Computed example of a mutant assay.
Amino acid sequence: MGSTCVRIAIDAMGGDRAPGEIVTGALRAREELGVEVLLVGDPQQIEAVLPPKTNTAQIEIVPSEGAIEMEEEPLSAIRRKPKSSINVAMDLVKQKRADAVISAGHSGAAMASALLRLGRLKGIDRPAIGAVFPTMVASKQVLILDVGANVDCRPKFLEQFAIMGSVYSQYVLGINEPKVGLLNIGEEDCKGNDAAVRANQMLRENPNIDFIGNAEGRDVLSGDFDVIVCDGFVGNVLLKFAEAVGEVMLQIIREELPQGIRGQIGTAILKPNLRRIKQRMDHAEHGGALLLGVDGICIISHGSSQAPSIFNAVRMAKEAVDNQVLDRIQSQYQSLQRESS
């Protein structure tokens, strides 16, 4: 796109707290990140949640009709509702009116809409949802993919996930030589089912992937790996479990702080540390998961996302656009195909 300002299409009707929290997070991102936001949804509902004295002339609202409900089957719903908020938001990216799209609505519908409207990157068989997890190493994160797009995966899909994850980890997360692992039930190359064994061999033989071996469940948050690949069934279970553990740990910390005056003094002293703990453990701080492999930047946020999570999702989308993640994945994969031919 000709403009240097990143434009983000936001599904204002998607999510448990839409449109209020979605709009609040989007407006904060516009002010603090210097992006343009296109709020997609019912104009009346969006305008009703705008802060008082908001200059509506500076906000672009793109009308849509309805949203995909969580109980609806994704593919049939997006075909039956062509003007739903997620479809209109995807169309904005397809038409080059926006650089990226964010939705906290039906994740299956978001993926289906992205595939039908944006299509896959050339050479990529299946897209993958990549989620960033904290690790035991301070300021270091690990990218897990897939966490829900593909229940079953062939070994070559996992190899493609590793390539896409490595590019994202290098250019957005700032890891010079991302170390890749394959989630498995043992460290040895022979462990796992037939698909896991074959995937291990393909990853180990690929010179463009810094594959360091299998990763067991206990290794996921160790900090030893920068990218871990798995099928979407296992990845989604892992994601939901990690989110629950994070919430439990934060609750335990709150409950175990001393009560009364002593507790107030202790909490005041520990406040910076507690804030950093929350930033490392709370899934809302990461904004969402990037749908890698489709021909457009698409961030899928948690259904319960509040304003801070939407803000972070916009930040994530902006970083992906600024670092030309799509072009880099496409270039990397095309070079691999030339080498193998």
Rank of each mutant, 00 (worst) to 15 (best):
Q170P: 06
Q170T: 14
Y171H: 15
Y171G: 08
L173K: 07
N176S: 15
N176A: 12
E177A: 13
E177K: 13
P178G: 07
K179G: 07
V180T: 13
V180S: 08
V180D: 08
V180K: 04
L182T: 12
L182E: 06
L183C: 05
L183V: 11
N184I: 09
I185N: 14
G186E: 04
E187W: 06
E187L: 13
E188F: 10
D189H: 03
K191S: 13
K191F: 10
N193P: 09
D194F: 09
A196T: 14
R198W: 06
R198L: 13
R198Y: 10
R198M: 15
N200R: 13
N200Y: 12
Q201S: 10
M202R: 08
L203G: 05
L203V: 10
R204Y: 03
E205M: 14
E205P: 04
E205I: 05
N206Q: 10
P207C: 05
P207N: 06
P207Q: 05
P207H: 03
N208A: 09
N208V: 07
I209N: 08
F211C: 06
I212M: 12
I212S: 05
A215W: 02
A215D: 04
E216D: 01
E216M: 05
E216T: 08
E216L: 08
E216I: 03
G217T: 10
R218D: 08
R218P: 00
D219S: 03
F225V: 02
F225Y: 07
F225A: 01
F225N: 00
D226N: 11
V227F: 01
V227Y: 00
V229I: 09
V229M: 02
V229K: 00
V229A: 00
